[in-house]
Each structure stands twice: as structure tokens, then as C-alpha cells.
Design a protein around this nucleic acid. Structure first.
Lengths: 180, 180
DNA sequence: TGTCATCCGTACACCAGCGTATGGAATGGG
DNA sequence: CCCATTCCATACGCTGGTGTACGGATGACA
């Protein structure tokens, strides 16, 4: 049983969201991508909005713990883990697209904004905890957390070119200073 | 003559873009906002895509020089101008929304991405020039430019809450350090 | 083998948004 | 006053997307 279960639709929906934003998660498009027709979709969800909500549930659930877990599992002191963070996060390239799509979506939808707020707050808390381990000054830790988060986002959203360097190099420069 | 000239449509289009992204700039909606019907629109533009292109032309033109001009006109050394930058930029709240909308749009449209690349490169060049005035180390100036730009974006896109502080306070902490 | 739950296919109603066609109104120049 | 230019209103066709209705297939299990 369960030829195309709920999960498949959600998964495909998130893929579409990452690629083209909320407006790109179209029922018939998802159906085609899954090799079926929309017949079954409305049996599962009844509604496009329901899918959207469940997609966000899934995203929130997944994204909150995943990175933190992968970084923490390696152990080491805060600087080491920050290094691993800067190293492991770019690998989640599939996820950043979803992340950015949700971020833009949140600007026009309060329900999405609330979810994002929860997720971002947890991430910021994690960063703060890391920096606090070697930053005695509380304000310093806060500033560095904000910078780390911002540069992670900015690295994907800012289109500027850097004469004589590539973006990766510039980001490396920032991370070096954040760990100093 | 010129009851609702080209400029009005473009202006209204940019407003819609800022509020709801490219998909929100709908011909009939703009017409209604302007108190007319779409009749005249197709006389001016013939095409929705043409409007979109001209909107981006206008945006690129306006955004490139405006901030730099306002900051430079006040004079002072680099630190003073950076202070003014951090002060004047948040005032352009209308513009940040357009900016973010374009940024998201650029992720799915190469033509938009090219424009954004030009704009962002000019902004980054300006930041680099400012920081270079008191950062002897080239890499330091580059890192700070990236941080400044990123935190400007991040401040509007990151939804995290900061215990015991508000966002404005956190951004102030960052800017203090960037000017040190 | 029969039956129930689960899922899919198909056809259709419906709406929103783009673009077209065409006649008409206002406005400034001669 | 007349005419050209510029802009607007209205009505329509078309496409692409959501949601509905309902019959059919398929598999688990008794």
C-alpha cells in the first residue's frame, strides 16, 4: 500500500519550494514530477494550503536539529566546532535554497514568519553558546553571532564580485576573524 | 497630456514588487491602484515583461548612486561616513523591500542576477574604499566590507530574537566594532 | 475469493491573469 | 474650431492553475 504516501508529496513540494518559491509548488507539477496525476493529492491533503503547512512543519522539524547535531557530534572546543560549522554548512547546499525561499516567503506571510522566528532564534542561540565559550565579553559574543549568521546568509544572497578574490576566500577571511 | 505616464506605471510596479515580489506586479492590479483600467497599460508597454525590465532599469539607476551620494555629501573621514551610512541606510525602509525582492528574484532569473551583480559590486566597492581609509591591511578591509553588507541584509532577513536586547542594539554592536 | 481501505485517472467547473481589438474621450496645437 | 495625439474603457479570447466528482485499480487481509 501507500504508492505515493504523504511524505513523497511533501518532499517534492519542498524541492519545488527551494527551486521556485511558494508559487512554484503547484499541485499538477508535483504530480507530474512524481509520475502520477493530482487525483491522489486531493485524497491526501484536500487542499494546497494544507500541503504548504505540512511542508513547513517538516522543514522546521528537520532544520532545527540537523546542523547542530552534525557539528556537536564531532566534539572539540568551541573554535574547533565553529571551524566545522563553517565547513559543514556550505555542504548543505540543497537546504540553503529552501532556507532562502522560506525567508522570502516569511516577509509576506505571518504564519511563516513565526516559524522562521523559532528556527532562527534556535540557531542564534547555538551560535551565541559557541562564541560565549571563548568570548568573555557578552556583547562581543552577541556581535559575532550576528555576524556569523549574516555572512552565512549574505554569502548566498549578495552578488558582488571581489577584485582579486573569490567569494569563498572572503568568507574564509571573515571566519578566521570570528574565531580569533 | 500624459494622465498616467510610463513613470507612474513603473513607480506603482516597484511598489508592488517591494510588497509581494515579481508575481505581485499584475497589470490589472496596478491599473486599479492607479485608478484606471489596463487599457492604457498596453498602449505604453505592450507587454508585462517590458514593464518588468524598465522597472529594473529604474531601480538599478536609482539605487546605485543614491545612498553613496547621501553619505558622501556630508563629508568627514571614513569613520564618520560609516557612522552616517549605518544611520542613513535604515531610513530607506521603502527601498530595502525592493532590494530584498530583487535579491530573491535574481535567484531564479539570470537577467535580474546580472543587474544585481552590477549593483552589489558597486556597493561593495564603496564599502571597501571606506574601510581601506583606516584599515592598512587589505584583507581586513575586505572582511569588514563583507560583514557590513551582510549584516545590513541579515538585519532585515534574520528573524531571530536576542535575549535581553533588540535587533537595533545588536546591529549597533556590530557597527561599533567595524569602525574600531 | 471477497471485501475494504487506499490511491490513481479522467473529465469537468471555475477563476485569475495576460493580451487583443476597437471605439471613444480629453487635451494641446494650428 | 478641428485635428492629431495620447490615453482610457469595455468586451472578449486564451491559458494555466485549483478544486470536485466519481469510477476504477490495486493490495492486505479475512
Amino acid at each position: 500500500m501507500a504508492r505515493t504516501p504523504r511524505g513523497k508529496w511533501i518532499e517534492e513540494g519542498l524541492r519545488a519550494l527551494a527551486e521556485g518559491g511558494p508559487q512554484a509548488v503547484r499541485v499538477e507539477a508535483l504530480a507530474q514530477a512524481l509520475g502520477v496525476t493530482k487525483g491522489g493529492f486531493y485524497w491526501h491533503f484536500g487542499d494546497r494550503d494544507t500541503l504548504l503547512r505540512e511542508m513547513l512543519d517538516t522543514w522546521e522539524e528537520e532544520v532545527t536539529a540537523e546542523v547542530i547535531e552534525r557539528v556537536e557530534s564531532g566534539g572539540g572546543d568551541a573554535r574547533t566546532r565553529l571551524l566545522r560549522l563553517a565547513d559543514v554548512v556550505p555542504g548543505l547546499t540543497t537546504d540553503i535554497h529552501t532556507d532562502l525561499a522560506v525567508r522570502d516567503w516569511a516577509r509576506r506571510d505571518e504564519a511563516v514568519a513565526r516559524r522562521l522566528r523559532r528556527v532562527d532564534t534556535r540557531r542564534m542561540d547555538y551560535l551565541r553558546a559557541l562564541f560565549s565559550e571563548f568570548c568573555p565579553d557578552e556583547e562581543e559574543a552577541e556581535a559575532r553571532s550576528m555576524i556569523a549568521f549574516s555572512v552565512w546568509i549574505g554569502g548566498h544572497l549578495i552578488a558582488a564580485e571581489h577584485p582579486g578574490r573569490d567569494r569563498e576566500e572572503v568568507e574564509r577571511l571573515v571566519w578566521e576573524r570570528l574565531r580569533a
